[in-house]
């Protein structure tokens, strides 16, 4: 019996199929990003145009038929409203069509759970880094079992900072991996470094980096901004590690695709004898498999939702989600 997961929180439309924790299909389509960034209504149109094709292609790849479908999971949030709406609508119609349960999944929980699942970890400290989010998270049992946020960005997500910088520096395509490429051959310039306890901010760093483009090579600026931002994230993570005494660290979310960030976190782990894990890139990018994985866990642990409870929530915080599985 398989679970279908639908992800549509931002620019990526993902349809995944999971059976007993095993990925049968993980189809992805990405809205073509221009120098204007993401325009939510246009992305929603893109998702609407492509979703039927993506679902049938995922089902075909998974080699399942209608009677194999056990449940439908979809991203409830956090994300862009119009984009979430498309996934929600399709999930509802599939659930009605196949007469199977519908499960609203938190996007951040999904990123964390798939990395945890792939590495076989039990109770990791997680650094969740993407365009919209940057958080240090771990499981806490009180007042109910949930993923607690030990620290997070006070302003923008670290991925948003990279994307923004790429557009200002006219790097094409305008996203993090292009900045990472420019950073390969840079030299360090001092930039604002802001960590407050286990929280951090990125807008000051972004403003400074953009200003430093006058007078320094883009390589030096990209390198220094990346080193500064990742060092801040590592410091916050290390502080949370000391506080929680957890024995495993995972990194997940779009920015977890960065080689340099993983190298730095591995160094943090080595200094404390902590296990380090991450998922392959296809699961750090937004994807449907992680949504299906969590939907299956929700289903197996007895969660049940009526159609009325299945809406979207643009600001669906990870720490408000009751975790009903181990």
């Amino acid at each position: 019996m398989a679970v279908i997961g639908i992800e549509s929180s931002a620019h990526t439309l993902g349809i995944g199929v999971i059976e007993g924790g095993k990925v049968l299909a993980n189809e992805m389509l990405m809205y073509p990003i221009t120098d204007k960034g993401i325009i939510p209504m246009k992305v929603a149109d893109f998702h609407t145009e492509n979703v039927r094709k993506a679902v049938s292609s995922a089902v075909k790849k998974a080699g399942i038929s209608a009677q194999d479908i056990e449940a439908i999971g979809y991203t409830k949030g956090p994300g862009l409203g119009p984009c979430l709406g498309v996934g929600n609508l399709i999930a509802k119609s599939l659930s009605m069509k196949y007469k199977v349960p519908l499960l609203p999944v938190n996007h951040a929980v999904a990123h964390l759970e798939i990395a945890k699942h792939i590495n076989g970890f039990r109770d990791p400290l997680a650094l969740y880094v993407s365009g919209g989010n940057s958080q240090v998270i771990g499981m806490e049992e009180e007042p109910f079992r949930h993923y607690h946020i030990y620290g997070e960005t006070f302003d923008i997500g670290v991925g948003n900072m990279f994307d923004n910088f790429a557009r200002k520096a006219k790097l094409v395509p305008s996203w993090g991996s292009t900045v990472a490429k420019a950073a390969e051959s840079g030299r360090y310039i001092q930039m604002p470094y802001t960590v407050k306890g286990m929280d951090f901010t990125f807008t000051g760093l972004l403003t400074n980096a953009v200003a430093q483009l006058k007078g320094h090579s883009v390589n030096d600026v990209a390198f220094s901004m990346q080193e500064t931002a990742f060092s801040m994230l590592c410091e916050a993570t290390e502080r949370a590690l000391m506080l929680t005494e957890k024995r495993e660290i995972i990194v997940c979310g779009g920015v977890a695709q960065s080689k340099r960030l993983k190298e730095m976190l591995l160094s943090v782990c080595n200094a404390h004898g902590t296990k380090f894990g991450f998922a392959p890139n296809e699961y750090n990018a937004d994807n449907g498999a992680m949504i299906a994985l969590v939907a299956e866990k929700m289903l197996r642990s007895g969660q049940h939702y009526s159609m009325m409870d299945c809406g979207v929530n643009q600001r669906y915080r990870i720490d408000s989600v009751k975790i009903t599985w181990k």
Binding site: E140, E142, P143, H146, H148, I149, Y150, E152, F154, M242, L243, T244, E245, R315, R317, D319, S320
Partner: peptide, 14 residues
């Protein structure tokens, strides 16, 4: 500011 409204207050050691 939103990011803080729902931040849970789990009791952690330290």
């Amino acid at each position: 500011r939103g990011r803080y409204q729902l931040r849970s207050l789990a009791t952690v050691k330290g």
